[in-house]
């Protein structure tokens, strides 16, 4: 059982929902990322999605675009992100880490070399935004054979046939994109999400995480009620942007954002 499956199964047994933060690695500086990861674990998160910065993040809104620019300006590369995960693993071998990003940095490194390095670093899952399963025939097995969970996106536009096929290529969890749009837009419709996620649950046994548009305890609880986990990205990345000059203040701000989400999600269990 992979670390991701283990964590999600334990949560399920407890009747709890996963809190999954996303931050862009290397933002505001590569030296700070591991500290921010530990801060988020202390605030009660279950799985960390670590964004690998890319020069052309087509699926992202302005908040994460700017985070990518800041991280790249500070010299963040895929290799350096893997080094951050290794560093994180020195003191934490329980919290799963999913690398989320675009295909080209992985292609440039070479798929096998990347897969080996990711396993060695202690990465648990790989989510590549611009790699639909149709193009992943050769790539996804390189991940799964090494115990890395390939995680794919589902969208409001995904047909039933594709949901089944995508789930067949996935392990760990599937990531449901809550609305048609880029990250950071505020247009989530909880009723629509509830309907679609319930439908996805009929088509696959995999846990369903929901991301895009979750920005506070209220939306987290509303989405947590109908899914297995909530993914929180742009609001955290925006907090990093606003507090980049003062790392202690930044860590407090992240904790202040995540604590109420954790409480709200755990409130659903009781």
């Amino acid at each position: 059982m992979s670390r991701i499956e283990g964590v999600l199964q334990t949560l399920k047994g407890q009747g709890r929902k996963a809190l999954i933060p996303f931050i862009t690695a290397g933002d505001p500086h590569p030296d700070e990322t591991v500290g921010l990861m530990h801060t988020m674990v202390d605030a009660g998160v279950d799985i960390i999605e670590l964004g690998v910065p890319f020069s052309d993040p087509m699926a992202d809104g302005p908040v994460i675009q700017l985070a990518c620019e800041r991280a790249l300006k500070q010299g963040t590369s895929l290799r350096r992100v893997l080094a951050m995960v290794s560093e994180f693993r020195k003191t934490n071998d329980t919290t799963p880490v999913v690398l989320m990003g675009y295909l080209n940095p992985i292609e440039a490194m070479g798929y096998e070399a990347f897969a080996d390095a990711a396993v060695n670093a202690g990465v648990d899952g790989i989510l590549t935004v611009d790699l639909p399963p149709e193009e992943a025939d050769d790539i996804a097995p390189l991940f799964s054979h090494r115990g890395l969970d390939p995680i794919f996106l589902l969208a409001p536009t995904t047909t039933d046939e594709r949901i089944r096929a995508i789930a067949g290529h996935s392990s760990g969890y599937v990531y449901y994109v809550s609305f048609k749009g880029v990250t950071g837009a505020a247009k989530i419709n909880v009723d629509e999400v509830a309907e679609k996620v319930a439908h996805i649950h009929e088509l696959t046994a995999l846990p369903v995480g929901v991301g895009f548009g979750i920005r506070d305890a209220e939306t987290a609880a509303a989405v947590g009620r109908v899914s297995d986990g909530v993914i929180v990205g742009s609001v955290l990345v925006d907090t990093i942007a606003r507090n980049q000059a003062d790392i202690d203040a930044l860590k407090r701000a992240l904790t202040d954002l995540l604590n109420p989400m954790r409480e709200a999600l755990d409130g659903l269990a009781s």
Partner: peptide, 20 residues
């Protein structure tokens, strides 16, 4: 059928666009 010219081409987009 998947839009490849030899090793090139294809369809590398986020899931939301696949159906369209």
């Amino acid at each position: 059928a998947r839009g490849h010219f030899g090793a090139f081409g294809g369809r590398f987009v986020s899931e939301t666009l696949m159906d369209s």
